[in-house]
Design a protein around this nucleic acid. Sequence first.
DNA 1: AACGTGCCCAACCGCTAGTAC
DNA 2: TGTACTAGCGGTTGGGCACGT
Length: 302
Amino acid sequence: MGRPPCCDIVGIKKGPWTPEEDIILVSYIQEHGPGNWRSVPTNTGLLRCSKSCRLRWTNYLRPGIKRGNFTPHEEGMIIHLQALLGNKWAAIASYLPQRTDNDIKNYWNTHLKKKLKKFPSALEPHSSTSTTDQLVEKSSSLEFASTSSSSAAAAAATTTTYASSTENISRLLQGWMRSTPKTTNNEDDSALILKESGCQDRDLISREEFESILSFDNVNNVSWDKSTCESTSRGACDDGEDKVKVAVTPENNKKQKADVNTNTNKNNNNPPLSFLEKWLLDESSAGQVEEMNQMMELSSIF
DNA sequence: AACGTGCCCAACCGCTAGTAC
DNA sequence: TGTACTAGCGGTTGGGCACGT
């Protein structure tokens, strides 16, 4: 629109965020909540543009973000969703509430694209239905993959020291989060999500399956919060109704109205959730990824 | 130890859509 | 109706790190 980018302004800092900047940003958001990003740099004294602040918050500091290795289940979901939706990372991320679109995009470009290039058959549908033995085998291998000490250790090892400090920073948010109406128990959270999101079709997927997707096994044991709600409400569990309660402020009121409009439009472009969920949560998709991983291991041996 | 190379991912860029005035 | 602004999105970049030579 002929407007120079905000980041072109002289004196605006670029590049990696320092822990000090993170603390300032988190403290401000603790006090005022996310939103009104334009006022953030001026009110905090941060030499960052509003956009940079927003991105830093949504992609890194926002509580509820899961970092580290992707599980085979997550891989399967990403692969299938990418095949279905294309490079609609935000839409894909809405099915993985703990992951940011940036994270998924990076993971796709750096890992999954290579895997699929090597094993394009991974995307082909399974020709036969799984036998009980196969199911047992797949579920056990999945369980192993998700809980194996080596992968867990690898995930922990990949966490940088700065990431750790960020985790500490995000702990600062706990006080703010506690002040928002929510349950403190993860089980209750899942139930709350199901109940309030309108995704009440318990026959669709098992509770464990759903929890495995939404489990907050990352930092903080952070439970559902309004930011998470915001990102999630863009996709999967949004049916345009008021679901997870957020603080009622003029800011939120405006945003909610906007969200309802935009989400309604967006959802019109997406296949029905129940169909997608059923398909995505089908164990075979995760099994295919597991098979692919095994093939990768074998290929590295030979 | 020094250097080169490739990979990973946080951050940036450019664009579009929506909203307020 | 036009303008300014924000938010969201997808593509790209570049700094830092690991690893091999």
